[in-house]
Computed example of a mutant assay.
Amino acid sequence: MAATSTPHFQNDAGHPLIEIGVTEFMCVGANPPFDHPHVFLDLGDDAEKVCPYCSTLYRLNRSLAADETIPAGCIFLDRAA
């Protein structure tokens, strides 16, 4: 079993680009109830990837921690948890 969970990111503000500090993550689109299917994305050897649902461009920024984004505030926090 994995020791850490996969970070989830949201894009309520409609940013065209979100910089992240991880290579494997989930995109949820906007926060519920306006979310899309929560899709797992893996950058692999690439530095960026576009979400196939909401077209958000995610770019790897190795200076960021797993719970940081540029612009700030794009971490998805499950309110039900």
Score class of each variant (00 low, 15 high):
Asn11Asp: 14
Cys74Asp: 08
Asp78Met: 05
Ala2Arg: 11
Asp35Val: 00
His15Arg: 03
Leu43Tyr: 02
Gly14Thr: 03
Lys49Leu: 15
Leu64Thr: 03
Leu17Val: 15
Leu64Asp: 02
Cys74Ala: 13
Phe76Asp: 07
His8Leu: 07
Leu41Ala: 05
Leu77Ile: 11
Gly14Ser: 05
Leu43Trp: 04
Ala13Gln: 12
Ala65Gln: 14
Leu57Met: 12
Gly44Ser: 07
Cys27Gly: 10
Thr4Lys: 11
Phe40Gly: 04
Pro33Ile: 06
Ala66Trp: 10
Met26Cys: 12
Thr69Val: 03
Phe34Trp: 14
Glu19Ala: 06
Glu68Asn: 03
Ala30Asp: 14
Asp67Phe: 08
Val39Cys: 10
Thr4Ala: 12
Thr23His: 08
Val22His: 00
Ala47Pro: 00
Thr56Leu: 06
Arg59Leu: 01
Ala13Trp: 08
Pro52Asp: 11
Phe76Glu: 06
Gly29Ile: 10
Gly29Thr: 08
Asn11Phe: 13
Ala80Cys: 08
Cys51His: 08
Phe34His: 12
Ala13Glu: 14
Ala80Gln: 11
Arg79Glu: 15
Asp12Arg: 01
Cys74Pro: 03
Ala80Leu: 14
Pro71Ala: 10
Gly21His: 00
His38Cys: 12
Ala30Trp: 11
Leu17Pro: 01
Ile70Met: 13
Phe25Ala: 02
Ser63Asp: 15
Glu68Phe: 13
Tyr53Asn: 12
Ser55Cys: 11
Ser63Leu: 07
Glu24Phe: 07
Asp42Ala: 04
Asn61Lys: 10
Asn61Tyr: 06
Asn61Ser: 07
Glu19Gly: 00
Asn61Arg: 07
Leu57Ile: 11
His36Val: 14
Arg62Ala: 01
Pro33Lys: 06
Leu43Gln: 01
Cys54Leu: 04
Ala80Lys: 10
His15Tyr: 14
Ser63Met: 10
Ala81Glu: 14
Asp42Glu: 14
Arg59Thr: 01
Leu77Met: 09
Pro7Arg: 03
Glu48His: 08
Val22Asn: 00
His38Gln: 15
Gly14Asn: 07
Asn31Pro: 01
Ala30Val: 04
Phe25Lys: 01
Cys51Glu: 04
Phe76Tyr: 15
Gly14Leu: 09
Ala30Ile: 04
Ile18Ser: 02
Pro16Phe: 12
Ala80Asn: 14
Glu19Thr: 01
Ala2Gly: 11
Ile20Pro: 00
Gly21Pro: 04
Pro16Ile: 11
Ile18Leu: 05
Val22Arg: 00
Leu57Ala: 05
Ala65Pro: 00
Glu68Ser: 01
Glu48Met: 06
Pro71Met: 09
Pro33Phe: 05
Gly44Arg: 04
Arg79Val: 12
Ala30His: 11
Asp42Val: 03
Ser5Val: 06
Ala30Ser: 13
Gly21Thr: 02
Cys74Tyr: 02
Tyr58Phe: 15
Ile18Lys: 01
Pro71Asn: 08
Ser55His: 14
Ser5Gln: 10
